[in-house]
Nucleic acid binder design. Structure first.
Lengths: 342, 342
DNA sequence: CGGCGTTCCGAAAAGGTTTTCGGAGGCTTT
DNA sequence: AAAGCCTCCGAAAACCTTTTCGGAACGCCG
């Protein structure tokens, strides 16, 4: 910050330069470039030509300073490394990028201090709004600082019900999964879940049990909680087969767990899907399409969630701020592990 | 853009407000807040208190307008969905976020039109520099528009050697991998690579062959090019075992390919690592640690690459612009698939 | 008491754009 | 011919911060 900016070529052309070249005042140049009226066609043409010749590009800072609106939003994520924030980020970037909005990306890495610092920086840059992306679906504390721009929470809802949160429908996902298995003719369904500490795991269980209840079917064995990893899937499947040899479907808490289950089933000589159907959650492509057979999974529609959050923020910027928790529907992606290839 | 900004609470406090509250002029308030001298301690204290009371946050737009430097950089990626851009992005965000820089994220999705549009938008926002992250390590055309801010290409180098590019050392990675296998006592080494269309695959082959050559060892069979997927790994391993039953190590073009190879080896009753050692590239945690046994891999250090790119851009902003291609070293992460557990 | 140096503060300009308002000129209407 | 309206353009203000420069107050010395 000590040194002055290095003189790199010549300074960017300003509206004044354009006006001078076109032989008009800056006011006229501005009007011509922005398509406002009260400018004759001939003059407008001259200005446009001058602007093109200088490859003029209006200074967004000056514009934002005057308009009180910058056309920027902040995307505050808790962990870029996690694989759930990425599709959401993509969806949001997608929805914004289509318009005239630019996105500031900040990674707080789960650190509250860092988060506060980033929020301050974003506010000082006068963003028009904020999207806060959580790293799990568990509720998170709202932003500490007082923010006078709209905030939308994505994936992890805010603990404050007055905030607007967009979350995936994990209960619905569990329900849809079981309904799919039942539709495939399965009646002896077990559930190997993920980490009990995550509401995503518990919600999916809730939905799954509800669907079983609706169908008048009992779960085979107990819900098995563990971790989100392949190793847990292998171990849990082994125990399951020992205790419940006649199981004909295993719903898994994640695609990774399902991969482990598939491994164990193969080793035990169970055919998938003929003997046992297997399903995962998240539809993580590299997991589902690399598996043998390919894995049926529930797509949580995270990219759509990101787009929804962006659109909600967009509305909140222009109009009134919504509140409450909104869910985004998910969908079953059917592959070979539940339905034999056609 | 039609509606005026919704009046959300009261407008953000400005330096004028702070000065008025503290009973000084804006100039004094500015000096006090920025820690410049020629302000008495008492006055400074009054100003700081007033600023805190109003929770004043200086308007970065106005500051940037004046300073000619905005403290923002643009991060232009070709495909957020790909998993290589993410760690780079993280590293860059990391290196920038530590200071006073904010990052604009743009996803061009491999579309040149969209890319140009984003570059224009970034320039109009007066970013101080740009990082262009490619989706593969193949050289890419330089930015179309004339940019008068420093640009650093990351992962994919620019086709123009006068640009500065930071890329992973794929040749070195191939070399290190083979050296590790040799160090593990393997002498009958095969290589199941990835997609021949990618320079990453070819470069790794180059490095691997060079290391074999140095050691006076011949590759077992031919280099097998295919895809980056698990299925290819399974198929290629099957063919390999048919033709070269006495192979004692398989170097795989990616972790995914390695997973497929592991699968086939298990089915064929070969023990890993006792009979055959297996290695992958990329060190994709979910692939390597979920495997049985856990997979030795070469970490391409992408996060470090992102940090390096950010630092290079930082230097280029302050001083002179570098040029040429710089590589970032990678490292072998040893796991059970090449070395028996201790 | 005058001169001088030091310390502190305020006025003003700069940065680039948008918008408002007034002015100038041309044309129509009475 | 005078009055009025419409079209087009330019001057200037506004947005907010930083920096420069001049001025004021004060203490100290001669």
């Amino acid at each position: 910050m000590a040194r002055p900016p290095a003189p790199r070529g010549t300074r960017a052309p300003t509206l004044t330069d354009v006006a001078r070249l076109a032989g008009v005042s800056v006011a006229t140049a501005s009007k011509a470039l922005n398509g406002r009226n009260h400018v004759s066609a001939a003059t407008r043409e001259r200005v446009l030509e001058a602007a093109a010749q200088l490859s003029f590009s209006p200074n967004s800072l000056a514009r934002g300073l005057l308009a009180g609106r910058t056309g920027t939003v902040g995307l505050l994520t808790s962990d870029l490394v996690g694989r759930f924030s990425l599709p959401i980020l993509m969806g949001a970037e997608d929805a914004f990028g289509a318009g005239e909005m630019s996105v500031f990306l900040c990674d707080a890495r789960g650190d509250a201090i860092r988060e506060r610092h980033h929020v301050q920086a974003l506010l000082s840059r006068r963003v028009d709004g904020l999207i806060v992306v959580g790293s799990s679906t568990d509720p998170r504390p709202p932003l500490a600082a007082a923010v006078d721009v709209p905030v939308v929470y994505a994936y992890a809802p805010s603990e404050n019900p007055d905030d607007l949160s967009i979350v995936p429908d994990n209960v619905g996902a569990g329900r849809m999964a079981v309904e799919h298995l039942i539709a495939c003719g399965r009646t002896r369904i077990a559930h190997i879940s993920g980490d009990r500490g995550y509401s995503a795991a518990r919600d999916r269980v809730t939905g799954a049990l509800a669907a079983l209840d609706d169908a008048g079917i009992a779960l085979v064995g107990q819900v098995a909680y563990g971790t989100w990893e392949e190793g847990w899937g292998r171990a849990a499947a082994s125990m399951l087969l020992d205790r419940e040899p006649d199981v004909d479907a295993v719903l898994c808490g994640s695609d990774q767990v399902a991969r482990g289950v598939l491994d164990t089933l193969r080793e035990r000589g169970r055919r998938v899907p003929e003997d046992v159907a297997v399903m995962g959650f998240d539809d993580w492509k590299v997991m589902t399409t690399g598996a043998r057979p390919q894995l049926t999974s529930v797509d949580m529609n995270l990219e759509e969630l990101g787009r929804t959050a962006a659109r909600a923020l967009f509305e909140a910027i222009d109009a009134e701020h919504g509140r409450g928790v909104r869910t985004v529907q998910c969908r079953v992606v059917v592959r070979g592990s539940t339905a034999p290839e056609a």
